[in-house]
């Protein structure tokens, strides 16, 4: 278990998440792509803490922040999905094409 191996796994998770966020039509599946990208970020943050900081506890705060971002993204994302569905009956991205400028 080296830092390089951990970062490569994190890069793979990030790549999968990027693919999902760009390719999925449904809002909820798009959010799963975003969560997957944050998953890779979390792994990379913990890896950096464990292998480059001699265990300085400040390094773990970045991971705590990533977890807070995950929770915020999920809550606000679902609130937006509910609001958009209530207003436009849309649950796929193509349904809100009129929001484009």
């Amino acid at each position: 278990m080296t830092l390089t191996a951990i970062l490569i796994v994190a890069a793979a998770l990030f790549g999968i998440g990027l693919f999902g966020a760009l390719s999925q039509k449904s809002f909820v599946m798009l959010m799963m792509g975003l969560e997957m990208m944050l998953n890779g970020t979390l792994l990379a943050a913990v890896g950096f803490w464990a292998f480059t900081l001699e265990g300085a506890p400040k390094g773990q705060l970045l991971a705590v922040l990533v977890m807070a971002v995950m929770a915020v993204e999920l809550a606000i994302g679902f609130a937006l999905v509910v609001a958009v569905y209530r207003k436009r009956q849309a649950d796929v991205i193509e349904g809100i094409g009129t929001m484009k400028q």
Binding site: G15, I16, G20, L22, S23, Q24, K25, S26
Partner: peptide, 12 residues
């Protein structure tokens, strides 16, 4: 339920 599929694979 996908769109811009090839582009997404490429980006990932």
């Amino acid at each position: 339920m996908v769109h811009q599929y090839k582009f997404s694979i490429g980006a990932g």
